[in-house]
Amino acid sequence: MLKKVDRGSEPTDGGNLILNTREEYDEAMKDPIAAKYVRPFRMGKELINNIERWCLWLVDAEPSEMRESKFISLRIEKVRQMREISTASSTKAMAKTAWLFGQQAQPQTNYLAIPRVCTNRREYTTCDLYEPNIIAGDQIYVCSDSDGINFAIIESSMFMAWQDAIGGRLKSDNRFSNTVVWNNLPLPELTSDMRAKVIEAGKAVLKVRANHPGQSLADLYDPTYMPQDLRKAHDELDKIVDVAFGATKPCSNNDERLEILFKSYIRMTQE
């Protein structure tokens, strides 16, 4: 019932389709054609720390527009040159479509954005729901999530217990995997009533986050300074998700959650 998770789009552009600074953004916006195709761009760092970054997303651009725009054409030429001199045959082939990201996986609907790596200090994952006009780079995993069920599950302590137990590490930090971690998460089939409760609890977390404008996910989920209302919203989410995974009552700790998870995993893989 959980949606498929994919890596975000990989530019393979030598940095030429990315607008890293406000100066680059302002320059692009002065070009009436380029301005049509500037989109917010997020990697894991931007997602977690609320850093502004942009890109040229030229999927729908017409050839005449790209030729006419000096800003766009110069950057496309740099991408073409970078790809042509690559020793990788796959990258060389991308030179024929130098205006496009090398690999595209942008959702067409609202989606869950999951950082590939996040610090193990946090008690919860630092994910967010994005609209499709925000372009996700390849340091983010993406998952279409129109109703928010996937967001609610991944923001629970049940998921975090699973991530900590079987997920990979980059140094000491948690490394998300769409195969080992997500695809193997033993979530039972939910009744429509339970599904609705999980979704609403996830929405409550988002609502509380919105009560703290200007705060990044890094700010909100620093365990030393996590706001009380946000912690309470997560506690309520955990109570519901624990039962959704098969607990007879809310769990007291992650050891109890792991016991449920591994029993469910064994049962589901034997069916």
Rank of each mutant, 00 (worst) to 15 (best):
K36L: 13
T109F: 07
D13T: 11
I134Y: 03
A98M: 09
A95P: 08
P186F: 06
N178K: 07
L56K: 03
K45M: 11
L170F: 05
A95M: 09
R121M: 04
E62M: 12
S157A: 15
F41P: 02
V198K: 00
I149R: 13
L19A: 11
I260Y: 05
P213V: 12
E189G: 00
P107E: 11
N110R: 13
R80L: 07
A244S: 15
W182N: 01
R53Q: 15
F176T: 04
Q163C: 06
S216F: 01
I153W: 00
W99Y: 14
K197T: 11
I260E: 04
R257Y: 13
R169G: 04
V79A: 01
R209H: 09
R121Y: 04
E10Q: 10
G167H: 02
K263C: 11
L56S: 00
R209Y: 10
Q270M: 14
C251F: 15
V5Y: 02
P250E: 09
N178D: 05
V243Y: 06
G167A: 05
N184K: 01
I154K: 03
E24Q: 15
S64L: 11
A35I: 10
L47W: 03
W54R: 09
E84K: 14
G14N: 07
F262V: 13
A95C: 12
E65H: 14
R67P: 02
K207P: 03
L185D: 02
T191M: 06
I166C: 04
P11W: 05
Y111W: 01
T125K: 10
G148A: 12
T125F: 09
D31F: 05
I114R: 04
D238E: 11
A152I: 12
I114Y: 03
L47K: 03
Y221N: 05
P132K: 01
F101S: 00
E256V: 14
K96A: 15
A93P: 02
T248A: 15
N174Q: 00
L190M: 12
L100F: 07
I149H: 11
A210T: 03
N110C: 10
A204W: 01
D60P: 09
S264A: 14
S86R: 10
A61N: 08
S192V: 13
E10Y: 04
S177C: 00
L230A: 08
L58A: 06
V79Y: 02
G44H: 00
R53S: 12
F71L: 06
Y141Q: 10
R267D: 08
F159E: 05
E236N: 12
V5F: 08
K70H: 07
K30N: 14
V208K: 12
R122N: 05
D173T: 00
D193R: 09
T21A: 06
R257K: 15
R116Y: 09
E52Q: 15
M160D: 07
P32A: 08
V198F: 07
R122T: 09
R121V: 05
D138A: 10
G214A: 10
I266G: 04
E23P: 03
E27V: 01
D60E: 14
R75W: 00
L217C: 04
W57V: 01
G214Q: 09
